[in-house]
Amino acid sequence: MTRQLEIDGVSKRYGDVVALQGITFEVRAGEIFGLVGSNGAGKTTAMRIVLGVLAADSGAVRWDGRALDRDTRRKIGYMPEERGLYPRMKVAEQLIYLTRLHGMSPAAARASVDDWMERLGVAGRRDDDVIKLSLGNQQRVQLAAALVHDPEILVLDEPFSGLDPVAVDVMSGVLRDKADTGVPVMFSSHQLDLVERLCDRVGIVRQGRMVAAGTVDELRAGGPEALIVTAPDAPAGWAAGLPGVTVLDQSGGSTRLTLDDGADDQAVLRAALATGPVREFARSRPSLTDLFRHIVSAPTEGEAA
């Protein structure tokens, strides 16, 4: 059996508030799975249920085909969105303490902490209190805390928040390396360009439901196609009023449009040529950011009714 983390029909309610509604997805061995959604969509709730911090009202979480128990959850590396570190404890002392809680010997804990602090670029801060670190370095230490016990599963809530581009590259490399060893990696992020670049598969959560899941290419292929028209001399609003045309944005002489079924793209081209030279006229699949906007802004079944 392929080892994978399965979230199967999980629901969670807080009084009248429905946080998750039968959410189902899997994170396969050796892949990076990005969980994206608006604030309050249910991403953190799903992660906390995987960790056992919250109990699901219904549904199941399985690892390797079996329900997660306490021993299995000890093998998960978890990084919460909120800082989960002791602010007035020294960095290395704290990481060794957390590693020992997972059952590693003192010598193995020290060796693992030294290795991960070096890889994540915080070896020089080992004797500093966490509270004295920048937010970016606190984030690196938080990731180290999720990795030092050599986890079999990684669950990370907004791991790239507050990181500069160099730190993003370091963390991205670490996650890719862990996935390459067969570890399933799940993380949430609002940085959709990063999700698009890094993830093997992506799930989009809306109001507690998984509304789309697949590779980035699969998701983009199912999204609305745009027409890119680059006409340097075209005035603002040149395409407004063309039948079946919706202007998404216009900047720097480039206009992005969508066409209704049956709309005449040649009429768009003629209108663009009427303003001057046309440098580009091409169809384009949406980026993950465009697709996300389209999905989360679409009316729900209840709103449509």
Rank of each mutant, 00 (worst) to 15 (best):
L51K: 10
T45Y: 06
A67C: 10
P80V: 09
R88H: 13
G252W: 07
K75Q: 15
D16P: 06
M210H: 10
A29E: 12
A272N: 04
T258G: 03
G77E: 03
S254I: 12
R100D: 08
A123I: 00
V202Y: 09
R28T: 10
D249S: 14
L156R: 09
G34D: 05
E303A: 11
L248C: 08
A109Q: 00
S188A: 14
L95C: 02
A29H: 05
G52T: 06
Y14L: 05
G124E: 01
H102W: 05
R279E: 15
A67L: 15
R48D: 11
L175H: 08
T44W: 08
R48F: 10
A305E: 15
G173S: 12
R119N: 00
D177C: 05
L227P: 02
Q207V: 09
L98S: 04
T275F: 09
L198T: 01
R3D: 15
M1D: 13
E31S: 14
S38L: 14
G262A: 02
L95M: 04
E225A: 15
R119M: 00
I204A: 12
Y97V: 00
A107N: 09
R209V: 13
F160H: 02
A236T: 15
P80K: 10
S287M: 09
V10M: 04
D157W: 04
R285A: 13
G136V: 00
Q139L: 05
D16T: 13
Y86I: 02
L259A: 04
A92F: 13
E303Q: 14
D157E: 08
Y14M: 03
G124A: 03
I228S: 13
V205S: 03
V268G: 00
G9D: 08
D157T: 05
P184Q: 10
P159T: 03
P106Q: 08
D150P: 01
A109K: 01
V247T: 12
G34Y: 05
R201N: 12
G65A: 12
A236E: 15
R13T: 12
G40L: 06
H149I: 01
D233I: 04
